[in-house]
Design a protein around this nucleic acid. Structure first.
Length: 353
DNA sequence: TAAGCGTGGTA
DNA sequence: TTACCAAGCTT
């Protein structure tokens, strides 16, 4: 039986030897660097984040620079990373820290968790990495490790199971630790889950808890943690308008909330006739040229996109609300576009239509 | 409380 | 090809 006090000791020792030490956001206690990485890493894998992280730090070297930037610039840099409320909250958080905290992040978990986009786990990650605070994270990695090592049944997304895991995680923290121990501990939780205790084929042979792990000892690695209950994902369909005027295409800013909130996208309609009317409204021909359809899969639904091309004949009608823009295809990279829209427009530019 | 919210990697 | 989901938060 694994004594609770042994858990952190063994994990810290393992992390120092076998953990990750050269990720771009490691080897610093700069809360801005750490905060930015933690927000980007929410529900997003390390390899996906790395290039975005580098671009953000290059453009916004500190929290005040980020706070002073137009939201549109932040969205453009975030485009492709997904979960765009993170980018809007990131910008709001930077402004709060810059204006209300004099540019210095608060150091306590409770204060951090008050900030936009920072929940309980992210607050603990920032507090432990930046300030050496004794606080536990509880992300997907930790849930998987705890479910297996301690044999916790039930879907971790369920409130009752998650609450039990928070309590357990708190009880496993190293006591009165040196800041470097806290860093190694928090990083160790993530590293163990990300490199050994992976979902598909865990490398139990190399695991420091192999002899004590309930899942390993009982051969239940595949059953723990319990899988998310299955749900059928609905399919939606939309028509998108590629309205061209010379080398420019009409973009419309999406509302700040909902899917792709705050990004620039193509005008949409619920069917082809409605799209023709939209094209006409913007000064385009009502004759629509069919483009190759594409399918985009979200976590909670599937979207079938029917793109249609129309010409604007130099009319260049500007919408009254100022939420539309004619974007030259050569400058399309400077707009924050949803991934499938970027794909569509890239293909269009390649085809020289 | 549970649903809404992206994208790309993996098996 | 389909299923699953990753350093979760917000409403």
């Amino acid at each position: 039986m694994l004594a609770l006090a042994d858990f952190s000791t063994r994990l810290i020792a393992w992390q120092r030897v076998h953990g990750r030490h050269d990720l771009p956001w490691q080897n610093t206690r700069d809360p801005y660097w750490i905060w930015l990485s933690e927000i980007m890493l929410q529900q997003t894998q390390v390899s996906t984040v790395i290039p975005y992280y580098a671009r953000f730090l290059a453009r916004f070297p500190d929290v005040n620079a980020l706070a002073a930037a137009p939201l549109d610039d932040v969205m453009a840099l975030w485009a492709g990373l997904g979960y765009y409320s993170r980018a809007r909250n990131l910008h709001r958080c930077a402004q709060v820290v810059s204006e209300q905290f004099g540019g210095a992040f608060p150091q306590s978990v409770d204060e951090l968790a008050e900030l936009p986009g920072i929940g309980r786990s992210t607050a603990a990650a920032i507090a432990s990495f930046a300030f050496g605070a004794r606080a536990t994270i509880l992300d997907g990695n930790v849930k998987r490790v705890l479910a297996r090592v301690f044999g916790i049944d039930g879907f971790p997304g369920e409130k009752r199971v998650e609450n039990a895991m928070w309590t357990l995680a708190e009880s496993l923290l190293p006591d009165a630790a040196h800041p470097d121990d806290v860093t190694a501990y928090t990083q160790g939780l993530m590293d163990l889950g990300a490199t050994l205790c992976v979902r598909g084929k865990p490398d139990c042979v190399r695991c420091p808890f192999a002899a004590d792990c309930v899942a390993n000892v009982t051969g239940r690695q595949r059953e723990l943690p319990a899988a998310r209950p299955k749900k059928t994902v609905p399919t939606r369909k939309t028509w998108m308008l590629v309205l061209k005027d010379g080398d420019s295409v009409l973009l419309e800013k999406r509302p700040p909330t909902g899917i792709w909130g705050g990004l620039w996208s193509l005008p949409e309609a619920a069917d082809e006739d409605a799209l023709a009317a939209v094209a006409h409204g913007f000064g385009g021909t009502e004759e629509l040229h069919r483009l190759a359809p594409l399918t985009h899969t979200f976590t909670h639904f599937k979207l079938d996109i029917e793109p249609r091309l129309a010409q604007a004949r130099g009319a260049c009608v500007q919408a009254a609300d100022g939420e539309t823009v004619w974007a030259p295809l050569s400058e399309i990279d400077s707009f924050g576009l949803p991934a499938p829209v970027r794909k569509l427009l890239d293909a269009l530019q390649g085809s020289l239509i």
